[in-house]
């Protein structure tokens, strides 16, 4: 059951420069686990053991997974998962 994952510039060093890759899983967490199997090291850029990093956003189709069931959100065949690191900073 493939899910299509859109990879941001910063993480393309893990995916041999691919901006869109496939992964398998029935939940977002399983998809991330599968990404880690295919592209070792990528998971720690997205999450720690339990949860998504605060400044990483994951969208399933157009929905922020934080407003769904977070990492337990169920994914369907051919869903689109978009990884988008926050753009942030400032003087402090």
């Amino acid at each position: 059951m493939p899910v299509f994952v859109s990879v941001p510039t910063l993480l393309r060093s893990y995916t041999q420069d691919s901006k869109r890759v496939q992964a398998q899983g029935t939940t977002v967490r399983e998809v991330v686990d599968d990404l880690e199997r295919r592209y070792p090291g990528i998971r720690s850029r997205l999450m720690d053991v339990q949860q998504l990093h605060r400044f990483v956003n994951l969208y399933l189709n157009d929905e922020d997974i934080r407003f769904l069931d977070n990492l337990d959100t169920v994914v369907a065949d051919r869903d689109e998962l978009t990884i988008l690191p926050a753009v942030a900073g400032g003087a402090r």
């Binding site: 400044f55 956003n57 969208y59 157009d62 922020d64 978009t82 988008l84 926050a86 753009v87 942030a88 900073g89 400032g90 003087a91 402090r92």
Partner: peptide, 23 residues
Amino acid sequence: PMVNHAGSQTFFQFEPREQLRVW
């Protein structure tokens, strides 16, 4: 121009949904 989601004098963050749309 993007919305500063932090609305702060010392921090900025692109509003996530707006960022998704623009990206």
